[in-house]
Nucleic acid binder design. Structure first.
Lengths: 111, 111
DNA sequence: CGAACGTTTCGTTGTTCATCGAAATGATTC
DNA sequence: GAATCATTTCGATGAACAACGAAACGTTCG
């Protein structure tokens, strides 16, 4: 992760709605994920994210916009499954962001 | 650090100019800081930050604005020394931010 | 005191962006 | 193929914000 990607990720996390989405995916994907018959972990859909984040009263188009912005920042990954859009946290980017912040704190960054 | 302070810090880091300031203070305070006669580490002034970030010789009101925004987010600390405004990185906040991001990645956050 | 210097505040301007409602897209089911 | 459902795109609106120049402020020094 370089200076630019760090900045984009931080900017994406700077919006309350998007941070709320990340928080939901964090707890959802890591702890409460439903298990399908195949045994795979089922990620929440865009609609489910919308329900949890807005209390089902906010417009889907806004959430869709935020989801794709988070995807562009590398913070989540999206996958089409039929009509649904499954969302899951990209843990790698968050860990890289943490590492970059730690390097900034100690003056070890070389950008 | 809670959800709100994390968001504010990320938002502050999301602007390219402010991230540039943080990057400068990171290398400056931790590696290239000048040593005063007293032995203390001398932090750069707002003017010096402006020179490095903008390349301009003149003090810029824009930089002043960004510095105070970074201070409000807890990412830097400012101290008046005569006419000068000394700036230094608040390493604690960056480390807390890193910790929070790590917890988000592993689903261990409880907000 | 008053001039010089570094910094901050003020007012403005243009841009970016979050949010919204409606229409369009794409996949599934009947 | 028509109907239905989930999601995305489009166009518009209003708010937040970065950037700028000028003026104001506070400190230091002659």
């Amino acid at each position: 992760m370089n200076n630019e990607t760090f900045g984009k990720a931080c900017k994406a996390l700077g919006d309350p709605t998007r941070l709320q989405i990340i928080g939901f995916l964090s707890t959802c994907c890591c702890a409460q994920a439903t298990i399908r018959e195949s045994g795979d972990v089922e990620s929440p859909t865009a609609g489910q994210v919308c329900c949890h984040v807005t209390g089902a009263e906010k417009i889907n188009s806004t959430i869709s916009h935020h989801l794709h912005e988070l995807e562009a920042a590398g913070l989540i990954r999206m996958e089409k499954r039929g009509t649904a859009a499954l969302c899951r946290l990209n843990q790698e980017t968050l860990l890289e962001l943490a590492s970059y912040a730690t390097r900034l704190a100690s003056g070890e960054n070389h950008d």
